[in-house]
Lab assay of single mutants.
Amino acid sequence: GKMTGIVKWFNADKGFGFITPDDGSKDVFVHFSAIQNDGYKSSDEGQKVSFTIESGAKGPAAGNVTSL
Rank of each mutant, 00 (worst) to 15 (best):
K8F: 06
E45F: 14
P60E: 07
S55H: 14
F10A: 02
F29W: 07
S50I: 09
G59D: 03
F51W: 00
Q47I: 11
A12W: 15
D23W: 04
S33F: 06
D27P: 06
P21Q: 02
T66N: 08
D44S: 15
V65E: 02
A34Q: 11
E54M: 12
Y40M: 12
T20C: 11
V28E: 01
V28M: 03
V30K: 00
D38V: 12
S67L: 15
F32Q: 09
H31R: 03
F16Q: 00
A12Y: 13
I19F: 01
T66Y: 07
D23V: 05
N37L: 12
G5K: 00
S55L: 14
S25W: 03
P60Y: 09
S43L: 15
V28S: 00
A57T: 13
A61W: 15
W9L: 00
H31V: 04
E45L: 14
K41W: 15
S50E: 09
G5Y: 02
V7G: 01
S33T: 12
P60C: 09
W9E: 04
K2E: 08
D22T: 07
G39Q: 10
F18M: 07
S55G: 08
K14S: 07
F32R: 10
S50W: 08
F32D: 03
F51G: 02
N11G: 04
T66Q: 11
A12K: 15
V28N: 00
G5W: 04
A61R: 15
F18W: 10
Q47E: 10
Q47A: 12
S43P: 15
Y40P: 08
E45D: 09
T4E: 04
G17T: 02
S42I: 14
G17M: 05
F10C: 07
Q47D: 10
A57D: 10
P21R: 02
T4D: 01
Q47C: 14
T66A: 08
Y40S: 09
V49K: 00
T20N: 02
E45I: 15
F29Y: 08
G1A: 11
T4N: 05
K8P: 03
S33L: 08
I35K: 01
G39A: 10
F18Q: 02
D23I: 05
P60T: 09
H31I: 06
A34D: 07
G46K: 08
D44N: 15
Q36K: 11
G56P: 03
I35E: 02
L68A: 07
K2G: 07
P60L: 11
I53P: 01
V65I: 05
S42A: 12
S55R: 11
F10Y: 09
L68N: 07
F16E: 02
G1V: 13
W9H: 03
F10R: 00
Q36Y: 10
I53Q: 04
E54I: 15
K8A: 07
G46A: 07
G5A: 01
G63V: 15
S33K: 07
S42Y: 13
